[in-house]
Each structure stands twice: as structure tokens, then as C-alpha cells.
Simulated scan of single mutants.
Amino acid sequence: MIIRQIFNNNVIRAENQVGHEFVVIGNGLGFKKKNGQRVDVEKIEKTFVLKSDKIPQKLIDLIGETSVAYLKVADEIVGNAKQEMGDIFSDNIYISLIDHIQFAISRYRKSVGVKNSLLWQIKKFYKKEFMIGMGALDIIDAQFGIQMDEHEASFIAMHFVNARQDGQGMKQTVEITEIIDDIFNIVTDYYELELDETSCNYSRFITHLQYFAQRLLSNEQDQRASGDNFLYEQVKDKYAQAFQCTHLINQYLELKHESAMSIDEKVYLTIHIQRVTTRKDMASS
């Protein structure tokens, strides 16, 4: 492994024999070293392993002005997230997370708290990401002695939602979450019931809404439409109540988002609504 850039005495950018770049942390790794020299592997404490062969310039710039403590915390949080959900996050998670942690700690040291208006929705619709956020609070507390609340955990969770969706913007994540919440409320109000959050059908329903909302905002519905009128009529007749609920959701989308569901989307959503609201999947009230 060869040194390509020295950020400081303890953080360097290195490259292996096949040209894959890494950010490497270790006490004295960069001390009295020069670009092109071999890395002292015995001193390596942590290695940022990215999906891309080359480290994004934005991350390089950020590391150049970030203390080792923040890098280690971010790397541990991402490592825990990968253990929980797999290696499904884009490399942007390092950029957004390091930047966010620095800003959040600065705020807390100044006693400036920020509330997340989507806290309830994040906890409900992104359970795994929220638990990653809660675990991140323990890591931050252990490193910096700062105890943050669940609002901060939800902000961290949203960064992982972004990274799971190929680094989509935070604005789109907020919009997707709001759409999911609105559709969820239409279903529960229409059926006048609480859904069983422990059921498999509930998990499938929420996952469907997440991807549906993403397709809606990305204008990808028409690309997926098969126009299967026969299946549409079958579902409409067989699941009349669920189809009517889907109709209400379509009206909401037309009114608030100026977008209507394709035939395929109506079929898929109707089936999910039927499954999640059948009696065996209802929460006891």
C-alpha cells in the first residue's frame, strides 16, 4: 500500500496495488513521510473502505479539515450500520455523516437544540435507520461526552436513508417521508384501525410506499407501466374496499402533488392495502 496524500500525522490517503484508494488512520502514519512511500501497516488503526476505486474529492477536502476523532466516530457508526443492514449505502454517507456530526456537536456545545418535525415518522417508517441513529448517540457520547436526544438520532437516520437511496437529496427524503405519512394516514383513517407494525405485510407495505414515493418524485411511473387492464379489473372487483382506498390516495396525489398513479401502481397499492388490512394483520384495539 502506497501513500498518495498526507492529511496530517495520523491520517493519509493510500492506494493498493490494484489502484483502489483508502483513507487510513493510525498514530504517526503520516509523520515524516512523503507521497509515494509505503504505508507502515503496523500503525494502521482504521481503514475507510469505499465502494468506488477513487475517493471523492469532496471527502478528501472534508478529511483535510476534520479531526481524527470525528473520522473514527463516523467510521464506527457506518460500520455498525453495515452490520445491521448490509453494505447498501453509497459512499456519500461518509461525507454527510462527518459533516453532520461536526455541526451537531458544535450546536450541542452551544446549547442549541434542534427538533426534527418528522421524528415520529422516521421512528415509524425507518425503524432500522432510527436504531442506527440511536446507536450513533452512544458512540458520540463515548467519544465526546455529549448526550444527544432522539431528535438527533432521527437526523442521523435520515442521512442513512439518503445513502440507501443512492445519495438522494435531504429535501427529497423529507418529501418521501411526508408522502408515506399522508398515505399511511389515509389508509388508517379509511379503515378506522391501527395496523400491526410487527407483521410481515406491514413491513412490505411500508417498503412499497417508500419506493412508490421515490418513483413518484422521480417521475418514473410511466416507465414501469404495463397497462394490464385485465389484472386491474380483477383487483378492482375482488378487493373493492382496498381499491376505493387507493382511489382516495390517487385523489390526494392529484391534489397535493399534481400526479396520478398509473394502472400498475393502483394494482400494486391495492394489493398491499388489502394484505395489510386483513383481520389477521390488524393490531388488537
Rank of each mutant, 00 (worst) to 15 (best):
E192L: 07
K236Q: 09
G36T: 10
E175S: 11
E197W: 00
N219G: 09
R109C: 08
K54H: 14
D281E: 14
N27I: 15
T207D: 13
F243A: 00
K58S: 12
N116E: 05
A225D: 15
D87P: 09
W120L: 06
E265K: 05
I63E: 05
Q37M: 14
K110N: 13
E197S: 13
E65C: 05
D166V: 01
K128T: 15
R4W: 02
F89W: 03
I88V: 15
A142Y: 07
A260L: 07
D138R: 11
A14S: 15
M131E: 12
E265G: 02
T198C: 11
S96A: 14
N92F: 12
I132T: 08
T246P: 00
Y252Q: 03
E194D: 11
K46A: 07
K115R: 12
Q17G: 14
G86L: 00
G30R: 01
L29H: 04
E76Y: 03
K72W: 05
Y191L: 04
D264S: 09
I88E: 07
H257E: 00
K236E: 06
L253Q: 04
D99M: 10
A213H: 00
Q223R: 12
K266I: 01
S262D: 09
Y126S: 06
N116T: 07
Q244D: 11
L118K: 03
R275L: 12
D189R: 09
